[in-house]
């Protein structure tokens, strides 16, 4: 139960935290003018009328960075408990961690060699 009480704080925090940014926005609603017109509501792209659809296909490069990040994200998750327990572990554990990181570094080197980390 002790652990859950700690998390009850977080739960309430998550609920309350929305109030603080929402409050000024709601207050501003009462004080600010409201005179919308067609030109004001246009998409602002440097004063030029917007051409075509915004939601179009984009550079695949962004996706590749996302993929590489995802792999590292999962790796980091495994390393957190390893780091926490590290002081109680022996050299074998260091070796296990080393091997784990080494295998993933391979992936990084592969991505590097295949130019997946290249911007253009």
């Amino acid at each position: 139960m002790n652990v859950l009480n700690e998390w009850a704080f977080v739960g309430i925090f998550i609920a309350i935290a929305w109030v603080f940014p929402a409050l000024p926005i709601i207050i501003a609603r009462f004080f600010g003018p409201k005179k919308p017109n067609a030109i004001k509501l246009m998409t602002y792209e440097s004063g030029v009328e917007t051409v075509g659809d915004t939601w179009v296909q984009f550079k695949i490069q962004y996706y590749l960075y996302g993929l590489v990040f995802l792999i590292f994200d999962v790796e980091m998750v495994f390393l957190f408990p390893w780091a926490v327990a590290y002081n109680e572990l022996n050299f074998f554990a260091f070796g296990a961690g080393l091997l784990f990181i080494f295998l993933l570094t391979d992936a990084l080197i592969y991505a590097w060699r295949k130019n997946a980390l290249e911007w253009s």
Binding site: P24, I25, I27, A28, R29, F31, G32, P33, K34, K35, P36, A38, K40, L41, M42, T43, Y44, T54
Partner: peptide, 15 residues
């Protein structure tokens, strides 16, 4: 600045 921001119009683009 806060007073200024509060009295500004909130524009939500049509699209």
């Amino acid at each position: 600045d806060m007073i200024k921001l509060i009295t500004k119009e909130n524009i939500t683009p049509a699209n």
